[in-house]
């Protein structure tokens, strides 16, 4: 039996590292979205993570990506020797669970279900959207601090790293933006431009407003998803009761988890 303080500590460790897993479509950590339902550590070496998406129909390809993202992050913890990921109550749940726990790589499993197709284009497309969304926050933050277009478009990476933002969104998104710049090789050296486009092109000062319009339209889409997903996650297991005061929404199950044996009948 694992000492409960250690167990709690290790579980917090797992929760922390799950923050690095994002919903590719929303560019939000799955922990923030409330997708992660259970984290359980046993024997100080074995981890079990269960997650649930806002609907049964959420894109299976993204469900795959998130499941594999969870696996990758957790297995990078030095004390983890074994782990299981379980996606609950989803149209492709069995396939995702079988695939992610089989030890095979993502592409092999995905190809098996899609006649050899790869998902690389879709993944790249969503990474570009995440980039746009993060960049918009940083750019608007700099404008709010009074930086002029000429200064912004010519700002080197090192200068951006020195900026002290105070807004909540800027504080949250700036490190995430810097991470993407680095991991994608878009800005690596201190004197590289801090604000290239996703294609690696510089932005001209005169075109900054137009560029921001483009970033905004990306954000409008992602916000639609985000608002929808948060709302659906909240109401997924609720039903309406019509009482004397009119209709109200009530949980029809304790918590958010449906009875296990009722989750997948007929599959």
């Amino acid at each position: 039996m694992l000492v409960s303080t250690l167990k709690t500590e290790l579980e917090l460790d797992v929760w922390d590292c799950l923050e690095a897993v994002t919903d590719p479509e929303l560019d939000e950590p799955i922990t923030d979205m409330g997708f992660v339902e259970t984290v359980e550590v046993s024997d100080a070496r074995t981890v079990r993570v269960e997650f649930r998406l806002p609907t049964y129909w959420c894109s299976p390809n993204f469900a795959f990506l998130m499941a594999f993202g969870i696996r990758k992050e957790i297995t990078s913890l030095p004390w983890v020797k074994e782990m299981t990921v379980q996606l609950n109550d989803h149209c492709f749940g069995d396939e995702v669970n079988e695939g992610v726990n089989s030890g095979r790589n993502y592409h092999d499993i995905f190809a098996q279900y899609c006649k050899g197709e790869r998902l690389d284009d879709v993944v790249a497309k969503f990474m570009s959207k995440a980039f746009d969304k993060r960049q918009e926050v940083v750019l608007l933050g700099l404008q709010a601090l009074g930086h002029r277009a000429e200064d912004i478009v010519s700002m080197p990476l090192a200068a951006l790293q020195r900026i002290e933002f105070t807004g909540e969104e800027e504080l949250r998104q700036t490190p995430r933006y810097l991470d993407l710049l680095l991991s994608q090789g878009l800005a690596v050296n201190p004197d590289d431009l801090a604000f290239p486009t996703w294609d690696g092109q510089p932005i001209h000062a005169a075109a900054l407003t137009k560029h921001l319009t483009h970033l905004r339209s990306t954000r409008i889409n992602m916000e639609f998803n985000g608002a929808m997903c948060r709302g659906l996650a909240k109401t997924r297991y609720k039903e309406v009761e019509i009482g004397p005061e009119g209709p109200t929404l009530v949980d029809f199950i304790a918590g958010r988890v449906p009875p296990r044996d009722g989750a997948n009948p007929g599959r």
Binding site: P54, T55, C91, M228, I242, P247, L249
Partner: peptide, 23 residues
């Protein structure tokens, strides 16, 4: 079952409360 449940979640998520229907 899950298809109509999902529609219902759209209904409950985005309707004003006085417009809600029983399942």
């Amino acid at each position: 079952k899950q298809f109509i449940d999902c529609f219902y979640a759209y209904h409950t998520n985005l309707s004003p409360s006085e417009e809600l229907w029983e399942k």
